[in-house]
Design a protein around this nucleic acid. Structure first.
Length: 444
DNA sequence: AGCACA
Protein backbone atom coordinates (compact mmCIF):
# COMPACT_ATOMS: atom_id res chain seq x y z
CA UNK A 1 0.00 0.00 0.00
CA UNK A 2 1.39 3.31 -1.00
CA UNK A 3 0.23 5.04 2.16
CA UNK A 4 2.21 2.61 4.32
CA UNK A 5 5.47 3.13 2.55
CA UNK A 6 5.42 6.83 3.29
CA UNK A 7 4.72 6.34 6.98
CA UNK A 8 7.54 6.95 9.40
CA UNK A 9 9.14 3.73 10.41
CA UNK A 10 10.46 2.67 13.74
CA UNK A 11 13.86 4.09 14.14
CA UNK A 12 15.74 0.83 13.92
CA UNK A 13 13.60 -1.19 11.58
CA UNK A 14 15.05 -2.23 8.29
CA UNK A 15 13.41 -3.37 5.11
CA UNK A 16 13.46 -7.17 4.88
CA UNK A 17 16.54 -8.87 3.57
CA UNK A 18 17.70 -12.44 3.19
CA UNK A 19 20.58 -11.31 5.36
CA UNK A 20 20.13 -10.92 9.09
CA UNK A 21 22.36 -8.85 11.26
CA UNK A 22 23.06 -10.33 14.69
CA UNK A 23 24.62 -8.54 17.64
CA UNK A 24 25.46 -9.22 21.24
CA UNK A 25 26.89 -12.55 20.26
CA UNK A 26 29.36 -14.28 22.52
CA UNK A 27 32.89 -13.55 21.42
CA UNK A 28 34.24 -15.78 18.69
CA UNK A 29 30.90 -17.25 17.91
CA UNK A 30 31.35 -19.94 15.28
CA UNK A 31 29.75 -20.45 11.94
CA UNK A 32 28.27 -23.70 13.23
CA UNK A 33 26.48 -21.86 16.03
CA UNK A 34 25.03 -19.40 13.54
CA UNK A 35 23.82 -22.20 11.32
CA UNK A 36 22.25 -23.94 14.33
CA UNK A 37 20.44 -20.75 15.15
CA UNK A 38 19.07 -20.18 11.68
CA UNK A 39 18.47 -23.73 10.55
CA UNK A 40 14.96 -24.07 12.03
CA UNK A 41 13.77 -21.28 9.76
CA UNK A 42 15.35 -22.22 6.46
CA UNK A 43 18.51 -22.90 4.57
CA UNK A 44 21.49 -20.88 5.74
CA UNK A 45 23.62 -20.31 2.65
CA UNK A 46 26.27 -18.06 4.11
CA UNK A 47 27.44 -16.61 7.37
CA UNK A 48 29.96 -14.14 8.60
CA UNK A 49 31.02 -14.07 12.21
CA UNK A 50 33.35 -11.98 14.33
CA UNK A 51 32.12 -8.78 12.74
CA UNK A 52 32.58 -5.34 14.20
CA UNK A 53 34.92 -3.73 16.65
CA UNK A 54 34.15 -6.22 19.38
CA UNK A 55 33.83 -9.18 17.05
CA UNK A 56 30.48 -9.88 18.57
CA UNK A 57 28.31 -9.32 15.55
CA UNK A 58 27.51 -11.61 12.69
CA UNK A 59 25.44 -12.07 9.57
CA UNK A 60 23.30 -14.96 8.47
CA UNK A 61 22.16 -15.23 4.88
CA UNK A 62 19.19 -17.42 4.03
CA UNK A 63 18.48 -18.96 0.70
CA UNK A 64 15.12 -17.25 0.60
CA UNK A 65 13.75 -13.99 1.91
CA UNK A 66 10.77 -15.71 3.48
CA UNK A 67 13.07 -17.76 5.66
CA UNK A 68 14.68 -14.61 7.01
CA UNK A 69 11.25 -13.11 7.60
CA UNK A 70 10.21 -16.28 9.41
CA UNK A 71 13.14 -16.04 11.79
CA UNK A 72 12.62 -12.35 12.53
CA UNK A 73 8.89 -12.86 12.97
CA UNK A 74 9.35 -15.79 15.28
CA UNK A 75 11.67 -14.01 17.68
CA UNK A 76 9.65 -10.80 17.49
CA UNK A 77 6.75 -12.58 19.16
CA UNK A 78 8.57 -15.26 21.11
CA UNK A 79 8.81 -15.13 24.85
CA UNK A 80 12.27 -16.66 24.57
CA UNK A 81 14.88 -14.50 22.87
CA UNK A 82 17.29 -15.95 20.37
CA UNK A 83 20.31 -17.26 22.24
CA UNK A 84 23.79 -18.51 21.57
CA UNK A 85 25.53 -20.24 24.47
CA UNK A 86 22.84 -18.87 26.72
CA UNK A 87 23.47 -15.30 25.68
CA UNK A 88 20.64 -13.27 24.22
CA UNK A 89 21.23 -12.40 20.61
CA UNK A 90 19.54 -9.48 18.91
CA UNK A 91 18.38 -9.92 15.35
CA UNK A 92 17.36 -7.57 12.60
CA UNK A 93 17.36 -7.43 8.85
CA UNK A 94 20.69 -6.41 7.51
CA UNK A 95 20.85 -3.29 5.44
CA UNK A 96 22.53 -5.34 2.74
CA UNK A 97 20.99 -7.92 0.50
CA UNK A 98 23.78 -10.42 0.56
CA UNK A 99 26.87 -11.24 2.51
CA UNK A 100 29.92 -10.05 0.66
CA UNK A 101 33.35 -11.40 1.40
CA UNK A 102 31.92 -14.54 2.82
CA UNK A 103 33.82 -16.40 5.42
CA UNK A 104 35.97 -18.15 2.92
CA UNK A 105 37.92 -14.97 2.16
CA UNK A 106 39.70 -15.39 5.46
CA UNK A 107 40.59 -18.96 4.57
CA UNK A 108 41.19 -18.95 0.84
CA UNK A 109 44.71 -18.00 -0.03
CA UNK A 110 45.07 -14.83 -2.02
CA UNK A 111 48.02 -12.70 -3.01
CA UNK A 112 47.12 -9.94 -0.56
CA UNK A 113 47.49 -10.31 3.18
CA UNK A 114 45.62 -8.36 5.81
CA UNK A 115 48.08 -7.79 8.61
CA UNK A 116 47.07 -6.55 12.01
CA UNK A 117 49.95 -5.25 14.07
CA UNK A 118 49.23 -5.78 17.74
CA UNK A 119 50.96 -4.01 20.56
CA UNK A 120 50.75 -0.74 22.39
CA UNK A 121 53.22 0.85 19.98
CA UNK A 122 51.92 -0.86 16.88
CA UNK A 123 51.28 2.37 15.02
CA UNK A 124 54.95 3.27 15.34
CA UNK A 125 55.87 0.39 13.06
CA UNK A 126 56.96 1.95 9.81
CA UNK A 127 55.88 0.79 6.42
CA UNK A 128 59.55 0.24 5.61
CA UNK A 129 59.92 -2.23 8.43
CA UNK A 130 56.85 -4.05 7.20
CA UNK A 131 58.31 -4.08 3.73
CA UNK A 132 61.55 -5.49 5.00
CA UNK A 133 59.82 -8.17 7.02
CA UNK A 134 57.54 -9.32 4.23
CA UNK A 135 60.14 -9.04 1.48
CA UNK A 136 61.80 -12.06 2.99
CA UNK A 137 59.19 -14.18 1.28
CA UNK A 138 59.01 -12.64 -2.15
CA UNK A 139 58.64 -9.46 -4.04
CA UNK A 140 56.23 -7.15 -2.26
CA UNK A 141 54.28 -5.18 -4.82
CA UNK A 142 52.41 -2.77 -2.62
CA UNK A 143 51.66 -2.00 0.98
CA UNK A 144 48.94 0.14 2.42
CA UNK A 145 48.43 0.86 6.09
CA UNK A 146 45.43 2.19 7.91
CA UNK A 147 43.83 2.52 11.29
CA UNK A 148 40.75 0.50 11.92
CA UNK A 149 38.74 -0.45 14.90
CA UNK A 150 40.82 -3.60 14.90
CA UNK A 151 43.91 -1.46 15.35
CA UNK A 152 46.84 -0.68 13.09
CA UNK A 153 46.57 -2.76 9.95
CA UNK A 154 48.31 -3.20 6.65
CA UNK A 155 47.50 -4.82 3.38
CA UNK A 156 50.53 -6.45 1.81
CA UNK A 157 50.38 -7.43 -1.82
CA UNK A 158 52.52 -10.23 -3.19
CA UNK A 159 52.80 -11.53 -6.73
CA UNK A 160 50.79 -14.60 -6.02
CA UNK A 161 49.05 -16.60 -3.36
CA UNK A 162 52.00 -18.93 -2.93
CA UNK A 163 54.40 -16.29 -1.69
CA UNK A 164 51.64 -14.68 0.32
CA UNK A 165 50.83 -17.91 2.07
CA UNK A 166 54.47 -18.63 2.81
CA UNK A 167 54.69 -15.24 4.46
CA UNK A 168 51.47 -15.82 6.34
CA UNK A 169 52.54 -19.23 7.55
CA UNK A 170 55.87 -17.96 8.76
CA UNK A 171 54.79 -14.67 10.28
CA UNK A 172 51.29 -15.11 11.65
CA UNK A 173 51.44 -14.76 15.40
CA UNK A 174 55.12 -13.81 15.35
CA UNK A 175 56.65 -10.64 16.69
CA UNK A 176 58.58 -8.17 14.60
CA UNK A 177 62.24 -8.52 15.56
CA UNK A 178 62.99 -5.83 18.09
CA UNK A 179 66.08 -4.62 16.31
CA UNK A 180 63.93 -3.55 13.40
CA UNK A 181 61.88 -1.35 15.69
CA UNK A 182 62.64 2.00 17.25
CA UNK A 183 64.15 1.76 20.67
CA UNK A 184 61.94 1.36 23.68
CA UNK A 185 59.17 -0.12 21.66
CA UNK A 186 57.19 -2.95 23.09
CA UNK A 187 56.64 -6.16 21.17
CA UNK A 188 54.55 -6.00 18.02
CA UNK A 189 52.75 -9.16 17.07
CA UNK A 190 51.55 -9.81 13.55
CA UNK A 191 48.13 -11.32 12.97
CA UNK A 192 47.65 -12.26 9.37
CA UNK A 193 44.69 -13.29 7.29
CA UNK A 194 44.08 -13.29 3.61
CA UNK A 195 42.46 -10.25 2.10
CA UNK A 196 39.92 -10.48 -0.65
CA UNK A 197 41.85 -7.80 -2.49
CA UNK A 198 43.96 -8.79 -5.43
CA UNK A 199 45.43 -5.46 -6.46
CA UNK A 200 45.74 -2.52 -4.12
CA UNK A 201 45.29 0.99 -5.37
CA UNK A 202 48.20 3.19 -4.32
CA UNK A 203 48.10 6.78 -5.51
CA UNK A 204 51.18 8.11 -3.79
CA UNK A 205 54.30 6.88 -2.12
CA UNK A 206 53.79 8.01 1.42
CA UNK A 207 54.30 6.94 4.98
CA UNK A 208 50.98 5.14 4.71
CA UNK A 209 51.19 3.46 1.33
CA UNK A 210 53.79 2.28 -1.12
CA UNK A 211 53.83 0.85 -4.59
CA UNK A 212 57.15 -0.90 -5.13
CA UNK A 213 56.31 -1.73 -8.71
CA UNK A 214 56.18 1.88 -9.80
CA UNK A 215 59.29 3.82 -8.93
CA UNK A 216 57.94 6.94 -10.58
CA UNK A 217 54.77 7.20 -8.61
CA UNK A 218 54.63 10.66 -7.09
CA UNK A 219 55.66 10.96 -3.50
CA UNK A 220 53.12 12.53 -1.24
CA UNK A 221 54.47 15.95 -0.23
CA UNK A 222 53.63 15.22 3.38
CA UNK A 223 55.97 12.29 3.40
CA UNK A 224 59.23 13.86 2.35
CA UNK A 225 61.61 16.36 3.83
CA UNK A 226 64.27 18.48 2.24
CA UNK A 227 66.58 15.61 1.54
CA UNK A 228 63.91 13.64 -0.20
CA UNK A 229 63.87 11.05 2.48
CA UNK A 230 60.79 9.87 4.20
CA UNK A 231 60.50 11.34 7.62
CA UNK A 232 57.32 10.63 9.35
CA UNK A 233 56.87 12.63 12.45
CA UNK A 234 54.93 10.70 15.02
CA UNK A 235 54.28 12.82 18.08
CA UNK A 236 56.67 15.32 16.60
CA UNK A 237 59.58 12.95 16.75
CA UNK A 238 61.44 12.41 13.56
CA UNK A 239 61.40 8.82 12.55
CA UNK A 240 63.62 7.95 9.69
CA UNK A 241 62.84 4.45 8.62
CA UNK A 242 65.95 2.39 8.85
CA UNK A 243 67.17 0.26 6.02
CA UNK A 244 69.98 -2.08 5.22
CA UNK A 245 70.72 0.13 2.24
CA UNK A 246 72.29 3.54 2.77
CA UNK A 247 72.10 6.47 0.42
CA UNK A 248 75.32 8.44 0.55
CA UNK A 249 75.75 11.77 -1.12
CA UNK A 250 79.16 13.32 -1.37
CA UNK A 251 79.58 17.00 -0.80
CA UNK A 252 82.56 19.07 -1.85
CA UNK A 253 84.00 16.35 -3.99
CA UNK A 254 87.41 17.74 -4.80
CA UNK A 255 88.85 14.30 -5.34
CA UNK A 256 87.36 11.49 -7.22
CA UNK A 257 85.54 9.07 -5.00
CA UNK A 258 85.49 5.70 -6.59
CA UNK A 259 83.46 2.65 -5.97
CA UNK A 260 86.47 1.05 -4.36
CA UNK A 261 86.97 3.90 -1.96
CA UNK A 262 83.37 3.68 -0.91
CA UNK A 263 83.65 -0.04 -0.54
CA UNK A 264 86.62 0.31 1.71
CA UNK A 265 85.07 3.01 3.84
CA UNK A 266 81.80 1.23 4.33
CA UNK A 267 83.31 -2.23 4.74
CA UNK A 268 84.69 -1.23 8.10
CA UNK A 269 81.26 -1.76 9.59
CA UNK A 270 80.31 -5.01 8.02
CA UNK A 271 80.20 -6.84 4.75
CA UNK A 272 79.16 -4.59 1.93
CA UNK A 273 77.02 -6.56 -0.47
CA UNK A 274 76.44 -4.11 -3.25
CA UNK A 275 77.25 -0.58 -4.23
CA UNK A 276 75.72 1.50 -6.95
CA UNK A 277 76.91 4.99 -7.77
CA UNK A 278 75.08 7.53 -9.83
CA UNK A 279 74.91 11.23 -10.52
CA UNK A 280 72.09 13.19 -9.04
CA UNK A 281 71.50 16.90 -8.67
CA UNK A 282 74.93 17.61 -10.04
CA UNK A 283 76.65 15.50 -7.41
CA UNK A 284 77.55 11.94 -6.85
CA UNK A 285 75.45 9.63 -4.79
CA UNK A 286 75.81 6.00 -3.94
CA UNK A 287 73.64 3.27 -2.58
CA UNK A 288 75.46 0.93 -0.25
CA UNK A 289 73.85 -2.32 0.70
CA UNK A 290 74.56 -4.25 3.88
CA UNK A 291 73.05 -7.60 4.74
CA UNK A 292 71.13 -6.16 7.64
CA UNK A 293 69.65 -2.98 8.95
CA UNK A 294 71.73 -2.99 12.08
CA UNK A 295 75.02 -2.77 10.26
CA UNK A 296 73.69 0.03 8.14
CA UNK A 297 72.58 1.91 11.22
CA UNK A 298 76.03 1.65 12.74
CA UNK A 299 77.72 2.73 9.53
CA UNK A 300 75.39 5.65 9.10
CA UNK A 301 75.90 6.92 12.60
CA UNK A 302 79.65 6.60 12.35
CA UNK A 303 80.06 8.12 8.93
CA UNK A 304 77.41 10.81 8.72
CA UNK A 305 79.02 14.19 8.23
CA UNK A 306 82.54 12.84 8.05
CA UNK A 307 84.93 13.56 5.24
CA UNK A 308 86.62 10.90 3.23
CA UNK A 309 89.66 13.07 2.61
CA UNK A 310 91.53 15.50 4.73
CA UNK A 311 90.61 19.13 4.59
CA UNK A 312 86.88 18.81 4.46
CA UNK A 313 86.82 17.19 1.07
CA UNK A 314 84.26 14.67 0.06
CA UNK A 315 81.97 15.05 3.00
CA UNK A 316 79.51 12.22 3.38
CA UNK A 317 75.84 12.73 3.98
CA UNK A 318 74.08 9.52 4.67
CA UNK A 319 70.46 8.61 4.89
CA UNK A 320 68.51 5.43 4.68
CA UNK A 321 67.41 4.28 1.30
CA UNK A 322 64.04 2.76 0.78
CA UNK A 323 65.67 -0.03 -1.16
CA UNK A 324 66.35 -3.30 0.52
CA UNK A 325 68.07 -5.04 -2.32
CA UNK A 326 69.87 -3.32 -5.14
CA UNK A 327 69.71 -4.78 -8.57
CA UNK A 328 73.19 -4.71 -9.98
CA UNK A 329 73.01 -5.47 -13.64
CA UNK A 330 76.68 -5.31 -14.37
CA UNK A 331 79.85 -4.94 -12.38
CA UNK A 332 81.70 -1.89 -13.52
CA UNK A 333 83.28 1.22 -12.07
CA UNK A 334 79.96 2.52 -10.82
CA UNK A 335 78.15 -0.54 -9.61
CA UNK A 336 79.19 -3.80 -8.13
CA UNK A 337 77.69 -6.83 -6.53
CA UNK A 338 80.16 -8.28 -4.06
CA UNK A 339 77.96 -11.23 -3.23
CA UNK A 340 78.45 -12.98 -6.53
CA UNK A 341 81.58 -15.07 -6.38
CA UNK A 342 83.97 -15.44 -9.28
CA UNK A 343 82.63 -12.43 -11.03
CA UNK A 344 85.39 -10.90 -13.04
CA UNK A 345 86.08 -7.44 -11.72
CA UNK A 346 87.20 -4.72 -13.96
CA UNK A 347 90.56 -3.26 -13.08
CA UNK A 348 91.72 -5.76 -10.53
CA UNK A 349 94.17 -4.01 -8.35
CA UNK A 350 96.33 -4.69 -5.37
CA UNK A 351 94.85 -3.98 -2.05
CA UNK A 352 95.70 -0.88 -0.22
CA UNK A 353 94.96 0.46 3.17
CA UNK A 354 94.32 -2.80 4.90
CA UNK A 355 91.73 -2.87 7.53
CA UNK A 356 91.57 0.70 8.59
CA UNK A 357 88.40 1.17 10.56
CA UNK A 358 86.19 3.59 8.85
CA UNK A 359 85.38 5.42 12.02
CA UNK A 360 88.77 6.87 11.36
CA UNK A 361 87.46 8.59 8.30
CA UNK A 362 87.32 11.67 10.38
CA UNK A 363 90.11 10.85 12.76
CA UNK A 364 92.70 9.69 10.28
CA UNK A 365 91.66 10.95 6.92
CA UNK A 366 95.18 10.91 5.61
CA UNK A 367 94.68 7.24 5.08
CA UNK A 368 92.50 8.15 2.23
CA UNK A 369 94.65 10.93 0.92
CA UNK A 370 93.83 12.00 -2.56
CA UNK A 371 97.36 11.67 -3.80
CA UNK A 372 97.71 8.21 -2.50
CA UNK A 373 94.46 7.28 -4.03
CA UNK A 374 95.36 8.80 -7.34
CA UNK A 375 98.57 6.87 -7.51
CA UNK A 376 97.07 3.61 -6.55
CA UNK A 377 93.60 3.33 -7.89
CA UNK A 378 92.09 1.25 -5.28
CA UNK A 379 90.92 -2.21 -4.98
CA UNK A 380 89.97 -3.33 -1.54
CA UNK A 381 91.03 -6.71 -0.35
CA UNK A 382 87.64 -8.21 -0.82
CA UNK A 383 86.80 -9.57 -4.18
CA UNK A 384 84.30 -12.07 -3.05
CA UNK A 385 81.70 -12.54 -0.40
CA UNK A 386 83.09 -11.01 2.67
CA UNK A 387 85.36 -13.31 4.62
CA UNK A 388 84.69 -13.86 8.25
CA UNK A 389 87.27 -11.36 9.30
CA UNK A 390 86.15 -8.52 7.19
CA UNK A 391 87.79 -6.05 9.41
CA UNK A 392 87.94 -4.79 12.89
CA UNK A 393 85.07 -2.96 14.37
CA UNK A 394 85.99 0.56 15.30
CA UNK A 395 86.64 0.07 18.96
CA UNK A 396 85.44 3.40 20.17
CA UNK A 397 82.01 2.94 18.72
CA UNK A 398 79.38 1.07 20.54
CA UNK A 399 78.50 -1.44 17.94
CA UNK A 400 76.14 -4.25 18.60
CA UNK A 401 77.53 -6.37 15.85
CA UNK A 402 76.14 -9.54 17.27
CA UNK A 403 73.01 -9.06 15.30
CA UNK A 404 73.96 -10.85 12.16
CA UNK A 405 71.57 -13.60 12.96
CA UNK A 406 68.47 -13.48 10.92
CA UNK A 407 65.26 -12.96 12.77
CA UNK A 408 63.83 -16.21 14.04
CA UNK A 409 61.25 -16.57 11.35
CA UNK A 410 63.70 -16.11 8.53
CA UNK A 411 65.17 -19.20 7.10
CA UNK A 412 68.36 -19.30 5.19
CA UNK A 413 67.89 -18.18 1.69
CA UNK A 414 64.76 -16.26 2.35
CA UNK A 415 66.18 -13.16 3.89
CA UNK A 416 65.24 -10.11 1.89
CA UNK A 417 68.70 -9.21 0.74
CA UNK A 418 69.15 -12.59 -0.82
CA UNK A 419 66.11 -12.16 -2.92
CA UNK A 420 66.61 -12.42 -6.57
CA UNK A 421 66.36 -9.79 -9.21
CA UNK A 422 62.67 -9.59 -8.78
CA UNK A 423 63.15 -7.27 -5.89
CA UNK A 424 63.69 -4.28 -8.04
CA UNK A 425 60.95 -5.34 -10.25
CA UNK A 426 59.87 -1.88 -11.20
CA UNK A 427 63.20 -0.96 -12.63
CA UNK A 428 62.66 -2.40 -16.00
CA UNK A 429 59.34 -0.98 -16.98
CA UNK A 430 59.74 -0.80 -20.68
CA UNK A 431 57.48 2.10 -21.39
CA UNK A 432 58.66 4.34 -18.60
CA UNK A 433 61.29 6.88 -19.39
CA UNK A 434 64.13 7.13 -16.95
CA UNK A 435 64.41 10.57 -15.54
CA UNK A 436 67.72 12.23 -16.28
CA UNK A 437 70.52 11.37 -13.89
CA UNK A 438 68.59 8.47 -12.65
CA UNK A 439 69.83 4.98 -13.22
CA UNK A 440 67.28 2.30 -13.70
CA UNK A 441 67.54 0.88 -10.22
CA UNK A 442 66.93 4.22 -8.57
CA UNK A 443 63.33 4.42 -7.59
CA UNK A 444 62.98 8.02 -6.56
C1' DA B 1 23.52 -3.47 21.75
C1' DG B 2 23.12 -1.08 15.83
C1' DC B 3 26.31 -3.45 9.72
C1' DA B 4 31.65 -6.15 7.31
C1' DC B 5 38.71 -4.36 4.61
C1' DA B 6 41.76 1.35 4.13
Amino acid sequence: MASVSSQPQFRYTQPPSKVLHLRNLPWECTEEELIELGKPFGKVVNTKCNVGANKNQAFIEFADLNQAIAMISYYASSSEPAQVRGKTVYLQYSNRQEIVNNKTTADVAGNVLLVTIEGSDARLVSIDVLHLVFSAFGFVHKITTFEKTAGFQALVQFSNAETASSAKNALDGRCIPSYLLPEHMGPCTLRITYSAHTDLSVKFQSHRSRDYTNPYLPVAPSAIDGSGQLSVGVDGKKLEPESNVLLASIENMQYAVTLDVLHMVFSAFGPVQKIAMFDKNGGVQALIQYPDVQTAVVAKEALEGHCIYDGGFCKLHISYSRHTDLSIKVNNDRSRDYTIPNTPMMNPQPSILGQQPASAVGAAPQQYGGVQYAQTPTQPTMHHPPPAGWGPVPPAQSMPMQGHNPPPYMQQGTVPFQMGPGMMHGAGHPGLPHPPHMPPYQSQ
